[in-house]
Design a binder for these strands. Sequence first.
DNA 1: TGGTGGATTTCGATC
DNA 2: GATCGAAGTCCACCA
Lengths: 220, 220
Amino acid sequence: MRLIVARCEVLYTGRLRATLPEATRLLILKADGSVLIHADAGGYRPLNWMTPPTVIDEDRERILVRNTRDERLEIRIAEVLSDVTHEMGEATPLEKDGVERELQAELAAQPEVLGPGLRLVRREWATDIGPVDLMCRDDHRWVAVEVKRIATVDAVEQLVRYLERIRLDPGLAECRGILAAQRIRPQARTLAEARGVACVEVDLELLRGTREPELTLFAV
Amino acid sequence: MRLIVARCEVLYTGRLRATLPEATRLLILKADGSVLIHADAGGYRPLNWMTPPTVIDEDRERILVRNTRDERLEIRIAEVLSDVTHEMGEATPLEKDGVERELQAELAAQPEVLGPGLRLVRREWATDIGPVDLMCRDDHRWVAVEVKRIATVDAVEQLVRYLERIRLDPGLAECRGILAAQRIRPQARTLAEARGVACVEVDLELLRGTREPELTLFAV
DNA sequence: TGGTGGATTTCGATC
DNA sequence: GATCGAAGTCCACCA
């Protein structure tokens, strides 16, 4: 990894055109061909960047980065303040503990929190336009469940599309829908009501807790 | 801006839990409180990060970053290979030339590419659920246009929602819809057809060119 | 401050 | 390779 601190001007053309007037910035050239340009503020996203694969041409005044899709990042160097290279060794991947995925797993394990008597029939129930997250039953009807971390109107419409398809099957014509999410936006709630879809807000921490009662019972 | 190259292990808890096993990485501590952890590969996105506002506690073995929403980034330092600070001065903002925005501007300037006789009435035509990108007319009817860079089924449904609202006005009851995009996904095209919405794929470079014909006529 | 929609979204799974 | 949905999405705009 090469780290350059330099006064520079930057021009990007590709999916859009963008220019950065001359200022001091950090340039990161990664081993895989990634090039990032960071200012000393502005959060986690670079001002400009180019993702691999790239070809990098460099001389004293300019670093030109190109990729295979006609995108072009030109860094015009006015003054180099620092230019160091570090060997970093191999990359170890990030391990994450789900989000929507985990929510879906918890709800699959305890569907009754979505409604009395609800039991799981299948996760990822296939329809011809894609899988519904959970297919369940209660004592009377089939229930299709769409799981989101944050549910917007899009989630409602996604579920409604699935329901349209599911109900084409005579045996599933009475299938109802539940939108389950950690958070349901007001517009989504309104649309869901209009479309006859039920909304359930669920608390992931709580779900985790109810599955391992011994952990919460003896917690201080 | 402070740049630290160190062997370290990282733990994030907040919206999810994530761990990074010990390896050599670049730590960036920005003046505004942003903290980024980058590997020597993997494109423009940090492995872990924290966006401002943050509180940073540091000692020899550990950097602990917290924000106001119970998120927590703990960097356990095994060995510091480099630790430098650079003054970067104030940030000059990135100037960009649209994307969807520019596409919308080009189509507003030459709506006839969307259909014969089409003329612009208003950009950002207000409805009670948000603005339609372009409202036009041809010789017979009103035409609502939704502009996207890439159009998915969501774009079709967004336009259909607008049309529902627009047609409530008796003078606009006959309004038709056009989905205009650089690229229209097959599913979007299918749904658009089912919903009676027209699709037009447009080429931004071509639009730019047709507006400045002298540039293309005399190009080598 | 919260909601909504765009992004050079990126990223991954799946077909 | 194309497509579709999720993301610690982030981010800006607007009420």
